[in-house]
């Protein structure tokens, strides 16, 4: 299936026709609703909050935020940002309760620091990876940086953001998550239905400390794969630094040889332990 991200920039792709199709399709609505509910579950908000909806579109996700029951911590008040004016006019027609801005998230997030309790984004941030012009300012990494820096600043301390997104490939996925980490977020990716066609990725971000794996502790059927541990191992002592290892001996021999000293020939026995005599 072709990706809309590959065809046109979002403000042109979601024209009046496409926006109406998107908003009225019952299939898309049910997928959006389930993803929004999942994101809310991950945010785990205890009381009614002030939420930023990034790429709010026609307010499908916002509607769910408004209608969250009191027992689940709702109802929430939200502010949406979207780049497609057609999508926003769909939202106006549907009379959603949140405020909306026509804005490009790749240009930053125009709110003062500590504005929001949480942020939510459904199927939006992969659009940031498309360069709309050849100018350096518009390069995907700059756009991602401006977005995540802005998002980090606008969330309050201890705030959380959950961004569901559709990366084109593994490179895009790591580009997005590393941009979030560079902005200062604690980041993790939750994968629903992994290795199926319907795989859904949620980038879970926290502002200010705490272990990101704690956010999924309340959920069932979630396996935690900690990439940090692997990283730490990788950053451990490299083979040729460990004194006495074969790689270390070979390095030292090469050093001595370079100095012009006489060095014994290397063989397959070099650096091997001697057999115990008995």
């Amino acid at each position: 299936m072709s990706r809309p991200e590959d065809t046109l920039p979002p403000d042109l792709f979601y024209n009046d026709v496409e926006s109406r199709k998107y908003t009225t399709s019952s299939r898309i609505r049910s997928i959006q609703a389930s993803m929004t509910n999942r994101a809310l579950e991950l945010l785990d908000l205890q009381h009614s909050s002030f939420i930023l909806d990034v790429g709010c579109g026609s307010g499908l996700s916002g509607e769910i935020l408004t209608n969250t029951e009191e027992v689940d911590g709702g109802p929430h008040t939200w502010v949406g940002m979207d780049i497609s004016s057609s999508m926003l006019s769909q939202a106006l027609e549907r009379d959603v309760e949140g405020d909306m801005l026509l804005a490009d998230i790749g240009q930053g997030v125009p709110f003062r620091p500590g504005s929001f309790d949480a942020a939510i984004s459904i199927s939006a941030i992969q659009w940031l990876c498309n360069a709309e012009s050849t100018s350096e300012e518009d390069a995907p990494d700059r756009r991602l940086k401006r977005f995540f820096d802005g998002l980090y600043a606008s969330l309050k301390r201890g705030g959380k953001a959950v961004c569901q997104f559709y990366p084109k490939n593994a490179a895009q996925r790591s580009m997005i998550s590393s941009a979030a980490i560079k902005a200062g977020f604690g980041a993790g990716i939750l994968e629903d239905d992994p290795e199926t066609k319907n795989v859904k990725l949620y980038l879970v971000l926290t502002v200010g400390g705490g272990d990101i794996t704690g956010t999924v502790s309340g959920l069932q059927d979630v396996d935690v794969m900690d990439a940090r541990r692997k990283e730490r191992q990788r950053n451990g002592t490299p083979a040729d630094k460990q004194k006495g290892s074969k790689a270390w001996i070979m390095r030292k021999k090469a050093q001595q040889e370079a100095k012009g000293k006489v060095v014994k020939n290397s063989s397959k026995y070099t650096g091997r332990k001697r057999k115990i005599a008995f």
Binding site: D99, L102, A103, Q107, S135
Partner: peptide, 14 residues
């Protein structure tokens, strides 16, 4: 307009 603020900036102002 209609309660929606336009925060799109021309590229030279970003």
């Amino acid at each position: 307009k209609e309660g929606i603020a336009n925060f799109l900036l021309p590229s030279h102002m970003v």
